[in-house]
């Protein structure tokens, strides 16, 4: 049995069977996570980077594509972080280069999580052919490493923004579907679902009123992981030249553009690299805190790697075929 199921059992266990009482539990979980030490650190780090990305464009000293200094010029009074490969201001490009990355990542995450959750819950509730079909599609997409699948889609129509969003969302959806299916299978057996079925509540309403509210916490953890992963993939795609397109700046692209000038002006590489690293590490740490709070800090040792399994996208339940 996967740890996700066990986890779902614990957090949605029989002690609190009524869906209505749990409506705002996710807020409580978030609040508790933000107050834990781990959560505070994670939120602080990620918040700092988000702040840079959001406020940055308003305070950037130069337009991001203006040639301000010479190529890979070291830091000076005019350009605090020196110049990039074309002599543009590294500071301005850094300040400008975050918001689009964040928006695209958030869009891909939202799309992927929404589709994945829908597919997973549908498979768990209806079972039968729908389950078989959905899980088959999941298997097919999971047979591609995420970045390879994204490249395959992007290779067709070229790197367009919407396509990057769809491609990354498509790599998330199957993973989310697996986790949500596992969690929902458990909820579907609960008495309050059976009760709703007996009074002939339509299936859609059962899913919306009885099942979904009980899955909000695992969904939250999953969203955090997917957001981290979105940033990794989209920045990575930009790094290899198939994500957000130049000349507009973004941190992934800057790393690649400027790495040949690493020795002349290290800041042009170090600063964007650091921002990406802080963002993903901060987000992941906060997500870890949320997961810990939502299943209780004292989780059994065997379940420690719950997050890691998800991050690389396979559950451990495949051995009980």
């Amino acid at each position: 049995m996967s740890s996700a199921i066990k986890q779902a059992r614990r957090s949605n266990g029989g002690a609190r069977p009524q869906a209505k009482l749990r409506r705002h539990e996710w807020l409580a979980v978030l609040r508790a996570a933000a107050r834990s030490r781990r959560g505070m650190i994670g939120l602080g780090i990620a918040g700092f980077v988000v702040g840079v990305a959001v406020i940055g464009p308003f305070v950037a000293p130069y337009p991001a594509t203006e040639f301000v200094t010479s190529a890979f010029a070291p830091p000076s009074k005019d350009a605090w972080l020196g110049g990039d490969i074309l002599g543009r201001d590294v500071l301005s490009r850094t300040l400008e280069g975050g918001w689009l990355l964040l928006i695209i990542s958030a869009a891909a995450t939202a799309l992927g999580v929404a589709f994945g959750a829908l597919a997973g819950i549908t498979a768990a509730y209806y079972k039968g052919w729908r389950d078989g079909l959905i899980m088959r599609v999941v298997d097919i997409i999971l047979a591609f490493p995420a970045i390879v699948f994204a490249l395959l889609l992007v290779s067709v129509a070229g790197p367009k923004l919407w396509l990057v969003v769809v491609a990354v969302a498509a790599t998330h959806a199957p993973q989310v579907a697996r986790v949500m299916r596992a969690a929902a299978l458990d909820i579907c057996e609960k008495d309050f679902v059976k009760a709703s079925e007996i009074i002939r509540m339509p299936p859609r309403k059962i899913i919306r009123r009885d099942i979904l509210p009980n899955l909000v916490t695992p969904l939250m953890v999953e969203t955090g992981l997917r957001m981290t992963w979105s940033i990794v993939i989209i920045a990575g795609l930009s790094f290899i030249g198939f994500g957000l397109q130049p000349p507009a700046p973004n941190w992934g692209l800057m790393l690649n553009e400027n790495r040949i000038g690493l020795v002349s002006n290290p800041w042009s590489v170090v600063v964007p690299a650091l921002l990406i690293a802080l963002l993903t590490v901060g987000l992941n740490t906060f997500t870890d805190a949320v997961a810990r709070v939502s299943i209780g800090v004292e989780r059994p040792v065997g379940e420690e790697p719950f997050l890691e399994e998800r991050l690389i996208g396979r559950t451990l339940d495949s051995a009980d075929v």
């Binding site: 990575g236 790094f239 690493l262 690293a277 991050l311």
Partner: peptide, 23 residues
């Protein structure tokens, strides 16, 4: 481990290049 888990490969790679091959 928690921190490194979330690092993208290209950031790790460039970090290693900075440490051992250039800076």
């Amino acid at each position: 481990a928690l921190a490194v888990t979330a690092l993208p490969e290209f950031v790790v790679a460039i970090g290693l290049v900075m440490l051992f091959a250039s800076l």
